[in-house]
Structures are given as structure tokens and as C-alpha cells.
Write a protein that binds this DNA or RNA. Structure first.
Lengths: 217, 217
DNA sequence: CTCCTTGAACTGACTGGTCAGTTCAAAAAG
DNA sequence: CTTTTTGAACTGACCAGTCAGTTCAAGGAG
């Protein structure tokens, strides 16, 4: 019954690390995200999550109504981190008078930062995003929307300012750019983790700015 | 013991659709790929797979050593389809004297074709590719290698012919291109399935050829 | 053509184990 | 005091894998 576990008695601060309870919840999120990224949702047991978080199983159910709810809240919590960071990167550039293409570039950088900071979370989104018929599908659609919109907005503004051709397909280009960064970053993390983020960023920038098909000299 | 159930009395044809057994295996592949794409590996039961294939559970175990093995063979079977089709597309262009950039474009098209023909298979690869600590991880590395190499080869040849800048990072660019097509196509299938493949192809071509940042007129 | 034989292919009830979710009394924290 | 955590015991559903028994199709034999 009591889904409102956050204690609405006081105006809940949402994110800050005030109460003991919040600390526990954060430990559980962290434990769950790595385990689920590694093994998938179904093969991760609640006992495992509790153990990795250093907490009793009963505590999990004191803090979350179910395994499903824990996961959904995890998804929602994660996307805020990503969308906020992308938006901040874009706005920072725009406010300093940079071009929208520069803003895109800054978002690529922010995306890479995010993925290298939260690889498990990213892996988990990728695994779930295009899956159908799952309990948390609606949550995922919101999550996707939240992230893609940020990219689309910048593209739209770029077209408005004549920085990009008006013929580009905004939603599709946004997806493609998103995918480009996502897959390149995951491969980087998985197969060449030693490379610097600047290196990776430079390669993707080049691709974005169409300098790939330009002649060398 | 007897894994060699195909009857080695005659020189086994390997792939053709001769025997009753092959037909059964194909039905099982088809059933498994959709179910696993929808629900994930762990939450898909062998009973479900058997039922969807119109076959008894025992038959699954007569044809495959385990659920894991069924899945691994499915992965291997699928990647052959993809790699072959990408390679064919690239070679066809090259042999007709086209540029390597044209070959890349043809591969994008072939990739889109593949994804629209086998959406479930694609979804399944995406979900599993960057996961760690799974039983079939080594199979997946082979699978990934097989696909990425095709793209890298074309990029390398393009650099050799001076069509692309020698400064591009071949593995990373290959990943990025792969991701661009993958994510754009999955989004297309999931959220705008009505659009024509030509439409999607055109948008991605534009992105590849750097015409995005060119001015409209 | 019909009857038999043979081995491969298939069947589905059954088993042993696992796991999500529940409950609760008692302890710790604040 | 209240809120939160503990940890262990329990339940009921679910599921991978097994195996003794059945069906099928092809190739003689008469």
C-alpha cells in the first residue's frame, strides 16, 4: 500500500542526502545498477542486491515496494543525471555565444563523461531501451524522450540559425548522433579503456563536423 | 554423449534445409529470437520457446544441449547473415568501380535492410553486446569482431585511396558509424515505422557525407 | 502393393532446485 | 518515544533439465 516511502510529512527534498533512509536507498541503487547491468534484470536476485549493498533483504522491501519498483526508480533517477548534464553542457556553450554546432560538440563531450562515469547505468539503458512488452516500458519511453529532446532542441535551433541545412531530419539525426556517441563510448569502455576521453572526443567531433570525407591536405 | 545427431553417415550438408531436424531447429530459432528480444534471455522460458515453435519441450533438448547453447547458436547464425550481407554490399560497389565512400553508403543501406528484416535479432544483439560476465561472452566478442571488421576494412581502403583523411581513427569511426545506423534504425522501427527505408537512408547518408553542417543554399 | 523393422525424432509428465515476496520479533539509531 | 534496520524462516510459484515411452519415415521383404 504505502508506495510513498519517501516520507511526505516534510516537503521532500527529492535528491539530497539527508536521512539515513536516503543513504540506504542510494546504496541499493548502486548495488542494483551494477548487478543488473552485468546479468540482466531477471537473473539478478533481490538477495544479491541486498548483499552487495551490505543490507538485509528485509530492508530492500522496507524501502521499495518490489524489485520492479526499485528498478523503475533507478531508471528515473539515472535519466535525470544524463538529461541535466547534457542540457547544462549545451546551455553553457549557447550562453557564452557559441554556435549550436559547438553546443552539439559540448553535448558529445558531456555524453562521453556520463558514460565513463556511469558505465553500468548506460549499459542497462541500452539493453532495455528498445525492448517491448516489459512492465516498465512506459517509464522507458519517458526516459528516452527526456534525453532525445535535448538533442533535438539544439538541432532545431541550429537550423533556425542557419547553421545546419533546413533539410535535415531532426528526430532521425538526433537518434543517429545519440547512437554514434553511445556505441562508440561503449566500445571504448569495453575494448580500449586505456584511451583518453579527449582522444575519443576528437574522433567523434571529426565525424560530426564532416571532416572525415575531406581530403588530408 | 552423441552431440553429432545430424547423422554423419553421409557427408553432412551443414546448412541446407534437407532434414526434418533442420526444419525443427529453424522453427526453434525463430521462436527463440522473438521471445528473447521481447523479454530477455532469463525471463524467457524453454516452455515458451517450445510452445511458440509448436513443438514439445523435449524436442528443444533433443536438438540443443541446453538453453544456453540454443542461444549461442542463434547468435552465431544471425551474425553470419549480417556480416555476409554487409560484405556483399560493399564488394558489389567496389567491383563496379565505385568509391569507398559509396561502399560505406551501400553498407548503411544493407544495415537498414537487415534491421528491418530481422528487428528482433538486432534488438537482441544490442541488449547483449556490452554486457559483462555472461556465459556466452566469448561468442559475442567473435560476433562483434565479425561485423566491425567489415566496416573497418572499407574505412582502411578508403584511407589508402585518399578518399578519407588519414587522420581518422579507424576502429572508433567504425564503431560510431555502426552505432549511428543501429540506433537510428531501432528508433525508426520503434517510433516511426511508417517511414520508408529510402527516407531513413537519405538522412543517414547526409550525416555520413558531412552535408549536415553545409549551408542550405 | 502391403507388412515389418529400424533408428532418428519427438513427446510431456515429472523432479529437484531456485527465488520473489511476506512476515515478524527484536535490536539499533536518532 | 518513533523510525529504520536486521535476519531468519516460510510459502508458493516457477522453471531447467530428464527420461521412459511414442511417432514417423524410409527401406527392405514377401
Amino acid at each position: 500500500m504505502n508506495t510513498d516511502a519517501a516520507g511526505t510529512g516534510t516537503i521532500a527534498p527529492m535528491d539530497s542526502s539527508n536521512t539515513r533512509r536516503d543513504a540506504t536507498r542510494r546504496k541499493l541503487f548502486e548495488a542494483a545498477v551494477t548487478l543488473i547491468a552485468e546479468q540482466g534484470f531477471s537473473s539478478t536476485t533481490v538477495d544479491e542486491i541486498a548483499e552487495r549493498a551490505g543490507v538485509a533483504k528485509g530492508t530492500v522491501y522496507y524501502n521499495f515496494a518490489s524489485k520492479n519498483v526499485l528498478f523503475e526508480e533507478l531508471l528515473r533517477h539515472g535519466i535525470e543525471l544524463l538529461a541535466t548534464s547534457l542540457q547544462a553542457a549545451a546551455e553553457e556553450v549557447t550562453e557564452r555565444g557559441g554556435s549550436q554546432v559547438d553546443a552539439l560538440d559540448a553535448m558529445i563531450r558531456a555524453g562521453l563523461d556520463f558514460i565513463s562515469r556511469y558505465p553500468a547505468l548506460t549499459q542497462l539503458y541500452v539493453a532495455e531501451l528498445w525492448r517491448t512488452n516489459r512492465a516498465w516500458q512506459s517509464t522507458l519511453m519517458v526516459v528516452r524522450e527526456r534525453a532525445i529532446t535535448v538533442v533535438e532542441d539544439v538541432l532545431r535551433e541550429a537550423v533556425a540559425r542557419d547553421e545546419l541545412s533546413g533539410e535535415i531530419d531532426i528526430p532521425l539525426t538526433a537518434s543517429a548522433l545519440f547512437g554514434m556517441v553511445l556505441v562508440a563510448a561503449l566500445d571504448w569502455q569495453s575494448y580500449q579503456p586505456d584511451r583518453s576521453i579527449d582522444d575519443v572526443h576528437a574522433a567523434l567531433s571529426r565525424l560530426l563536423q564532416g571532416r572525415v570525407s575531406g581530403r588530408p591536405s
